[in-house]
Amino acid sequence: MIARTTGAAIRGILVALVVLTPALYLPVSSTNGTEIVVFLAILAFFLTFAEYNSAFPSFIEFRDAPPVNRLRFVGLVTMVTFLTLICKNAYMPTSLTEVFYSVGLSIANIVDFPYSPVRLIVLILPSGASAPLTELVRISASVAYVAALATIAAFAYAVKLRGWPTGNGAFNVWTNLPLFDPTKGGDVVTRLQRDGRLNISIGVLLPFLIPALIKILTEYADPISLNNPQTLIWTMSAWAFLPASMIMRGMATLRIANLIVEKRRAYSTTESTQAA
């Protein structure tokens, strides 16, 4: 009980620190900005603590099947930290921020090519956007997208080469997939495979669809202002992290479906041998 409470508290503190990171290093755009950020950090802490301190899952998936959520967290921390230092270079440049900005610029020169998701993000900026803002958005989008790809690659390594989740003991579907009801009609394997393929497909398409949707919505509403560095950081992080998280979920559910198929096949073989 104590170990679970301590672990939940540590997780909550780490999540709260991620929420606070941009506000600690970058200027706040409004007088109420600090209070809002602190409130969100406290809310993130309590939600994370309540989820991991409870013996019964509610909405966080794969909480007992590392390293899924750990990789997600590391990927998000990498995005937020990297983008914070890049944005800080525009306000208070230091030797450290200049290094991160240079690395980000090198990444942008590689992944920013015609029809890439990064290029589409740049195209949503208004025609009157300044050159420094355009360059900052280009670099931020590139870094976030590469961090998302690295997170997906790390999980693919865990699945393909490390045999996730078999190394963590028995996989409890109820605990790790609280939003999935195995009794709700249809074969479990078919449903898991369908959900997995759907999540991967949507995750692959979202980095292309989100800029297009934003561009369409700007014709009917005021566009998102990326002049605020904190808005830029969270917008780019969400744009890259959400699709990556969906792809990882799709890979995980497909893996679970394959394990169930293998278990059924082994059970069928055992039954056939005993019958003979």
Rank of each mutant, 00 (worst) to 15 (best):
Arg162Gly: 03
Ala131Thr: 12
Val122Thr: 09
Ser140Lys: 01
Val111Ile: 11
Ala141Val: 02
Val38Thr: 06
Phe39Trp: 09
Ile110Gln: 05
Phe46Val: 15
Arg138Val: 03
Val38Ala: 12
Ser102Leu: 10
Val143Tyr: 03
Pro57Glu: 07
Asp64Gln: 14
Ala156Asn: 03
Val159Ile: 15
Ile36Met: 14
Arg70Lys: 09
Tyr115Thr: 15
Leu133Gly: 08
Leu149Arg: 14
Ile124Gln: 04
Val143Cys: 12
Val137Asp: 00
Asn69Arg: 14
Met92Phe: 12
Tyr25Arg: 05
Tyr157Pro: 05
Leu125Thr: 07
Ala50Tyr: 09
Pro57Asn: 11
Pro57Asp: 10
Glu135Ser: 13
Leu133Ile: 12
Pro27His: 04
Ile60Ser: 06
Ser95Asn: 08
Ala65Lys: 05
Ala23Ser: 13
Ile110Thr: 14
Leu85His: 02
Ala158Arg: 06
Ser140Ile: 03
Glu98Cys: 02
Gly104Met: 01
Phe113Leu: 13
Ala153Thr: 13
Ser116Arg: 06
Thr151Val: 10
Leu120Ile: 05
Leu47Glu: 03
Pro126Trp: 06
Pro27Phe: 01
Ser106Arg: 11
Phe82Gly: 01
Leu123Gln: 12
Phe62Tyr: 14
Leu47Ala: 14
Leu149Asp: 04
Gly104Ala: 04
Glu61His: 06
Val143Glu: 03
Ser95Gln: 11
Phe49Val: 07
Thr134Gly: 11
Phe56Lys: 11
Ala150Leu: 14
Ser29Asn: 11
Leu85Pro: 00
Ser29Lys: 05
Val68Tyr: 10
Val37Gln: 02
Val19Asn: 04
Asp64Ser: 13
Met79Phe: 02
Val137Arg: 00
Val77Gln: 01
Phe113Gly: 10
Leu125Met: 09
Ala153Phe: 12
Thr34Gln: 07
Leu136Lys: 02
Ser127Trp: 04
Val38Arg: 00
Thr81Val: 15
Ala50His: 07
Ile86Gly: 00
Ser127Arg: 12
Val137Trp: 00
Ser130Cys: 05
Ser142Asp: 07
Arg63Asp: 05
Ala156Pro: 00
Leu71Val: 14
Thr48His: 04
Leu125Trp: 02
Leu40Lys: 05
Arg119Ala: 15
Leu136Met: 13
Thr34Asp: 04
Phe113Arg: 15
Asn89Thr: 11
Ile152His: 01
Tyr91Ile: 14
Phe100Pro: 00
Ala153Ser: 13
Ala23Tyr: 04
Ala50Trp: 08
Val99Asp: 07
Gly163Lys: 04
Ser58Met: 10
Ser142Tyr: 05
Phe45Ile: 05
Ile152Trp: 01
Ala156Gln: 08
Pro22Ile: 03
Phe59Leu: 10
Ala158Ile: 01
Thr134Lys: 13
Ile86Ser: 01
Ala129Phe: 07
Phe39Pro: 00
Leu24Gly: 15
Asn109Glu: 12
Pro114Ser: 14
Ala55Phe: 10
Phe62Asn: 02
Pro114Tyr: 13
Ala108Thr: 02
Ala147Phe: 01
Thr151Asp: 07
Pro117Lys: 02
Arg119Asp: 13
Thr21Glu: 00
Val19Gln: 03
Tyr91Ser: 11
Ile60Lys: 08
Glu98Thr: 13
Val68Gln: 00
Val80Trp: 00
